[in-house]
Design a binder for these strands. Structure first.
Lengths: 170, 170
DNA sequence: TGACTCATGTCAGCATTCTGACATACCGTG
DNA sequence: CACGGTATGTCAGAATGCTGACATGAGTCA
């Protein structure tokens, strides 16, 4: 209906398109993961652990793009159902290295297949060369956003820890 | 730290990179929007209304990638502070066309500048041609994900629901 | 015209994630 | 060694978005 002639730049905005793509991907993943009783963050956590055994809570959080608090509650749940294990005491410092249990690994396997199929579908219609291009271009955007910062010297970024204080909503 | 030799495919996954890029963009936007007391969804709503006056609640929801319920509470808040207006009664059907007030428009203008700067930063280091490539590739991914579906006829999904009649297009 | 399907607006309850805060452990520098 | 700076794990409360559900209006088809 609203087909106006204005140079609506949402239609031409890469940022908007990026959000759209990411949303489509998330939805598609939720779709195939739901039957397995698994959320995207849930899957990301397991996949990270499979590929890098012994990651800590904080490292997992960064890898899954959530706060370490959020990852912590997820890990506690996963521990309860026996998908991961953490030592009762930290071998060094406070860092608790997490590992998949055989059971967790089996659970992951089904999920990996499902997720892989989504990624394959997403890449359908793109040549190898185009996939490489996409990879390179996305990396460029990420890099520019991360440290191509204006004035505000971002040093830490826990996960996104600029956080002045909460947003005062309208 | 954990730099194992395993062919860690999270490092080469376009899906993972897409999420990373989208997260970086969201964080960057929140950063510049926070001083203005505005969230990303909040901004998206105003921007949509500026470019397509008279959009309905549901159309705005689809355009901002949230459910219509979520958009509804946002609109009520925006109405309360006088940034948008909706007729008390629907001119036709149940659809309430929403419009920006002058005040809402002023509020948007500042935000637009801020957001534009983020997008410019994100595109820094990319040529025009590369930006076009990125656009085309993202569109391809979105399209493949949306209807390149495998048998599983999922209908549910308030948000990306069909949307033949809405903002969607492309 | 009546039945059916679909989209919309909205209320209410629930889930997930986030922000705030605290204690603690490591590391570099003076 | 003491100290400031940074990271970590974790608990608790708050915000944000989502699912469920309902009534209503419009379009379609027989």
């Amino acid at each position: 209906m609203s087909q106006d002639g204005v140079g609506v730049d949402l239609e031409t905005s890469l940022g908007y398109l990026l959000k759209q793509a990411s949303t489509a991907l998330r939805v598609a993943m939720e779709e195939v993961l739901r039957p397995l009783g698994m959320s995207v963050t849930h899957y990301a956590c397991l996949e990270l652990l499979a590929q890098r055994p012994g990651l800590s809570n904080s490292e997992l959080a960064r890898g899954a793009f959530v706060t370490r608090q959020t990852m912590n509650v997820l890990l506690q749940a996963l521990e309860r159902v026996g998908h991961v294990t953490r030592p009762a005491e930290a071998p060094v410092g406070k860092v608790l290295p997490t590992r998949l249990t055989p059971r967790g690994r089996r659970s992951l396997e089904k999920a990996t297949v499902a997720v892989r199929s989504v990624e394959v579908r997403m890449l359908a219609g793109m040549t190898e060369a185009e996939q490489s291009d996409a990879f390179r271009l996305l990396q460029s955007m990420i890099h520019s956003l991360r440290d191509g910062n204006d004035g505000a010297r971002v040093v830490a970024r826990h996960t996104s820890r600029r956080a002045r204080t909460g947003v005062q909503r309208a």
